[in-house]
């Protein structure tokens, strides 16, 4: 077997180990690389900045535990900004695990700002069938969620006395690992002109760029990079900022493997042709 043939047949386990090391070292040595802020993330920040104090922002946690490393930093950064601006927050989930995962972020960030559950924020809970859920919010929130996740009637929650439908909601942030925010765009934005921000996994980013063009979404926070940019904007570097250096180094390693693999492929092909 020639050298180039060997290059094209590197054991995939060697590649896994190299990728692992490219993630471990930047984390271990706290290696930081610059991260440019993109327009869609800056637009999200500016929109939240423009909201009057006391406005209500809905956080919809539509993701599973599997994507927490991506979703938690962006949910935390966005919620931190929202609370720092004195905005009120209503949480909900159209995925079962979203309630617990979202509520953990609520409790952690709310404790930092001394926010009171029921007055400054509330977690309503889980509902299946997102289309009817998003449509149901246009009429009466309490018909969709008669109680919050703790089992308290909405009529007994102070914050919910002034949140009845989309008319009382200034922004919806869908923290999602799939195309759930499309449903928010289709129904809440197209019909009721509710501003939407998808905070999504990087995999889903290309799905939402067309919506930015027609301003069907006010901005977006895609993946760990989007979360790191948001942490920069609010000047609170967190898990995403630390993770981005590992992200960049591992991308360089992958690009290197792709280049070497391609050179190996073409050189091996050329050698076979010459023989």
């Amino acid at each position: 077997m020639s050298f180039w043939d060997k290059i094209t047949k590197i054991d995939r386990r060697i590649i896994f180990v190299v990728i692992l090391l490219s993630v471990v070292f930047p984390l271990l040595f706290n290696f930081m690389l610059p991260n440019k802020i993109t327009k869609e993330v800056a637009d999200t920040y500016n929109f939240i900045e423009s909201l009057p104090e006391g406005s209500v922002v809905v956080f919809s946690f539509d993701h599973d535990a599997a994507t927490v490393p991506e979703m938690r930093p962006m949910g935390t950064a966005l919620l931190d900004h929202v609370f720092s601006r004195g905005l009120k927050v209503v949480g909900m989930a159209f995925r079962a695990e979203g309630v617990t995962l979202g509520n953990k972020i609520f409790q952690d960030v709310a404790a930092k700002y001394g926010m009171i559950e029921g007055e400054d924020f509330v977690m309503l809970g889980f509902r299946p069938e997102i289309t009817s859920g998003v449509l149901g919010l246009c009429e009466n929130v309490s018909r969709l969620y008669p109680k919050d996740y703790r089992g308290i009637e909405l009529s007994e929650i102070p914050l919910m006395q002034r949140v009845h439908s989309y008319r009382d909601i200034a922004l919806v942030i869908s923290v999602s690992d799939d195309d759930t925010p499309v449903i928010w765009v289709n129904y809440a934005n197209a019909r009721y002109q509710v501003p939407i921000v998808p905070a999504i996994t990087a995999v889903m980013a290309t799905t939402f760029y067309p919506f930015l063009q027609e301003k069907q979404i006010v901005g977006m926070v895609p993946g760990l990079k989007g979360a790191a940019e948001y942490e920069q904007l609010i000047r609170k570097p967190g898990d995403a900022s630390v993770g981005m250096s590992a992200q960049s180094i591992s991308h360089l390693v992958i690009i290197l493997f792709v280049i070497v693999g391609n050179i190996g492929y073409f050189m091996a092909k050329k050698q076979r042709k010459n023989f």
Binding site: T67, P69, G223, D239, S250, H251
Partner: peptide, 18 residues
């Protein structure tokens, strides 16, 4: 973007372990 997402998950787990 998919590669970025998958590496993010790895970073999350490695961060947790470390």
């Amino acid at each position: 973007f998919t590669v970025m997402a998958r590496i993010s998950l790895l970073i999350g787990r490695v961060s947790f372990l470390m």
